[in-house]
Design a protein around this nucleic acid. Structure first.
Lengths: 337, 337
DNA sequence: TTTATTTACGAAACCGTTTTCGTACAAAAC
DNA sequence: GTTTTGTACGAAAACGGTTTCGTAAATAAA
């Protein structure tokens, strides 16, 4: 009933507390016979050491903190899977925190981490984040942090992303090749590096094909479906309607489909659409959505692996490294053949 | 650089450790002037108490453990959101664990919880789970546990679910009314209570309308897309092909769409489909999928609220309570008008 | 045989808080 | 003026492990 402690085991076996502790951790100081006796009792009574006592003494927690904007995006859902897979394998626990794209929340979470709650952090920055003193603060305390997907450029650490620029370049080119004359870029943040990389890919593809960059074709979206929807709808009702769309984030694709349906615009005949997306159901949308499919699981897994590897060393040293796991453009029916 | 401790604050202010601690926790034993001085320094140095030291001493962790099969199902993604929203509000931390439908993993996770790592548990049992000694073991240690969605009937605690039986009954009835003569039920577990409730809803609806229950029309799926796909495809190629499908879980809907596409079966003309699903994109599938949409966020939120409320009491007492948050049948084009 | 080394264990300090208890002093009650 | 009550703080004992260091006995080296 009451929580089992090492002291009780010690009494039971007529050994000292330290001997039990060492036996459990398989120390060379303890004889095999004693280890056997101890392990037997541990097994029998189902003893699990109090992790907080251990953490306190050993000054680590075997826990990693994951800070992400949301989970309701299949990218992050899959990324968590990847993270969790290596955490589980390596004996780490995963604390999860959602910022809901709020900088304030992000800051509070990282500040809490200064307490030593986590050994390391995996992070995808919020849309609002435009400075990084909170991140620097944490890293200066010696807490290693690895970015994935949404990185913050100015911070020197490992960043695991996909080839955002190239993917956007490629898809914009694809739209151009399929005859689009006026392509909208749906952005979800003006400050985020990832968003800008995608934007630059879009821009460079336009320039490369001798298109003008029309600032009004770059739409900045909020995080509110309703207002995003209205913004897009209005844009699509304008005189010289666009005939191509590159959505830089999954949920904007849904917004596009909704607006087009309501405006009775046919995809891809009236307007062609490509979106960054990891939806399993992309092929069964009407029409099937041409996507830039990110290796979300892989990204999460890689980021976690890098972090865990750094945690193994006594002196946490994280390389300033950009690991790029490429996306694939999967052409479906929302663009012309 | 080095971690800040209460001792350093004490030295800095010429006060004792206990005074600082009490001041921070706003104890009545401490004068307002002292509290002010302490809080000022805390603010200035950005001091955050070591959570593990606190946890050790106070014998609680302000942490809840969430144990779910996966995240790559929009139901669980949304549920996590709900859970996190109340955790954040109430100052709890969220440890997340995925069982990947493995009973062994589930058991290991719950066993670890016996260490006192978490104050309480939110759980959706794995598909394989068919006995509950591990759950009982944990609860006997005094760790409160609330089930959500996938409950284990035999355990007495709060269970937050949706109206699984009624939803299945309703959708089966809908299929019958739309002219289906032979309806498949796609099950994802034979042992899980939730799956059986849905199955019973399906069966009772059939009986009510004087249909026979054909055991061969109840298909048990694994967790592997490929084999599920083959199973379904074979079934749909048989002589007397079914003309209706009720999928008891989201990802099976995708399997159905895939199989129908490959077999050139038109939904809803050749075969009508309803699925339990929370996909945002359901309306944009081809055809738009008629769904039983579960209040996933709400379920997560409610479960977390119940748990947190129980944790507030000194004597954790969780009522044996079944909270049912109803789903809604949203009729779209995968069933006839 | 004596000395050095190894083996196997225990005592006690320590990790950073919280909490109980004791106490000095001031204010109130008598 | 003495006793009682309150106020504001500090010393020290937890919490449950881990780790350092000391040591007795057994073994190896001299």
């Amino acid at each position: 009933m009451n929580k089992l402690t090492i002291k009780m085991l010690a009494k039971e076996l007529g050994l000292s507390v330290s001997t039990i502790s060492k036996a459990i951790r398989d120390s060379h100081e303890i004889s095999n016979t004693t280890k056997l006796r101890v392990n037997e009792l541990v097994e029998k009574l189902n003893y699990v050491p109090n992790p907080y006592a251990s953490s306190l003494r050993r000054r680590n927690s075997k826990t990693i903190g994951v800070v992400i904007p949301e989970v309701v995006d299949s990218f992050f859902a899959q990324a968590i899977n990847g993270i969790e897979s290596v955490a589980q394998e390596k004996g780490y626990h995963v604390l999860i925190y959602l910022t809901h794209e709020s900088f304030e929340k992000e800051k509070r979470i990282l500040q809490d981490f200064e307490s030593g709650r986590v050994d390391g952090v995996l992070m995808s920055v919020s849309r609002e984040t435009n400075h990084c003193s909170h991140i620097e603060g944490l890293m200066n305390m010696g807490v290693p942090l690895v970015f994935f997907d949404r990185v913050y450029d100015a911070i020197e650490t490992t960043k695991v992303t996909t080839n955002d620029y190239e993917s956007a370049y490629l898809s914009t080119t694809h739209l151009i090749e399929k005859g689009c004359k006026q392509i909208l870029f749906l952005s979800f943040s003006t400050s985020l590096s990832i968003s800008n990389k995608r934007l630059n890919g879009y821009k460079d593809a336009l320039l490369k094909h001798n298109f003008n960059i029309v600032e009004k074709n770059i739409l900045a979206f909020s995080n509110d479906f309703r207002s995003d929807y209205l913004l897009l709808k209005r844009k699509l009702q304008s005189a010289k309607r666009a005939d191509g769309i590159l959505a830089s984030v999954e949920k904007l694709a849904i917004t596009v489909y909704q607006a087009c349906e309501d405006l009775q615009l046919n995809i891809p005949n009236d307007i062609q659409v490509i979106s960054f997306s990891n939806l399993d159901s992309a092929s069964f949308l009407n029409p099937p959505l041409t996507t830039i499919t990110q290796p979300a699981f892989e990204i999460g897994k890689t980021a976690a692996a890098v972090l865990v590897k750094a945690l193994k060393k006594t002196k946490y040293e994280i390389q300033t490294d950009e690991i790029i796991v490429p996306s694939t453009l999967i052409i479906r029916k929302s663009t012309k053949v």
